[in-house]
């Protein structure tokens, strides 16, 4: 839902970032307001995933230029955990396994860290169990997953559902979902997309990083951005995704070549 007067949640200006001294982001500009759903598309290596990691504060990525303001404060002043507590959420493409750490306990500590920041009371073990059981429904997840170690031995689809469960618990202001659709069969994709749709409100925003159009059949974006060579090359509405579906990314190469020549 596009409302020009809605709060500007994320304001990315000329963002440059590199990994191991290799520049990946080369001047990204993007504004995200409350209520909006953005899709960032592009080929592998275009910088989409790097953008999501930089926003969440992954230590392997170094910001080399530009600014990002989150709700009017400098995002890069904040540690990753601080960003999360303030409502920035990254749904991982490859959620890591953490052996020995109980999923339930992890979810509880995480939820309480966010609640504390919002001035809400901490949930004890019992209260949290009730709370989490409500949220399980969002992703149709079996409570048995709560008893296991974080993501350990989960299938690809189970890991992604666990990500959306975390999103449901943390109630983020800006949710960045990095290739959440990758590796999912169509049923799992529908469940995950259904979860994202249920969680989208007029007060939050979603940034979908995706390679394929098929996720966008389930979640309707307000904006579609095409990334290439570390920049947003073109921005449009939903129709841009459909156009990409038909024409592929070849035009991107032509456009980049033209830019290079210019």
């Amino acid at each position: 839902m596009i409302r020009p007067d809605a709060e500007l949640l994320l304001d990315i200006n000329d963002l440059h970032a590199s990994v191991e001294d290799k520049p990946i982001l080369k001047g990204v500009n993007l504004q995200v307001r409350a209520g909006e759903i953005h899709a960032v598309m592009g080929r592998n290596g275009s910088g989409k995933s790097t953008l999501s990691k930089v926003l969440a504060g992954h230590p392997a990525y170094r910001v080399t230029g530009g600014t990002v303001r989150y709700r009017n404060q400098d995002l890069f002043d904040l540690e990753p955990e601080e960003r999360a507590r303030l409502g920035v959420f990254l749904g991982f493409q490859y959620p890591v396994e953490i052996p020995g750490v109980s999923n339930l306990e992890f979810l509880r500590v995480s939820t309480n860290a966010r609640r504390e920041k919002q001035g809400e009371e901490e949930l004890d073990t019992f209260a949290f169990e009730d709370h989490v059981h409500d949220k399980l429904k969002v992703v149709q997840m079996d409570p048995a997953f709560l008893e296991r170690s974080v993501n350990e031995g989960f299938s690809g689809g189970e890991k992604k559902r666990n990500e959306i469960l975390q999103m449901a618990l943390l109630e983020p202001v800006v949710a960045i979902l990095d290739e959440t659709d990758s590796g999912l069969d169509i049923d799992a994709l529908r469940i995950v997309a259904g979860g994202v749709n249920q969680l989208a409100t007029e007060n939050n925003a979603t940034l979908l990083i995706t390679h394929y159009q098929r996720l966008l059949d389930e979640i309707t974006p307000d904006y579609v951005h095409v990334m290439a060579a570390g920049q947003i090359l073109r921005t449009g509405g939903r129709e841009l995704a459909l156009e990409l579906e038909q024409t592929g990314y070849d035009w991107v190469d032509r456009e980049l070549a033209a830019q290079g020549a210019a």
Binding site: A56, G57, E79, E81, S102, E105, V109, A113, S149, Q166
Partner: peptide
Amino acid sequence: CRISEDQLFYLQSRGIGFEEAVSMMVSGFC
């Protein structure tokens, strides 16, 4: 095993402080 940067980042990106993340992983290990 080694506590990996990615595991720590995962916990941090869920609002869990760095030191707490380490101690969670260590006590899980033990």
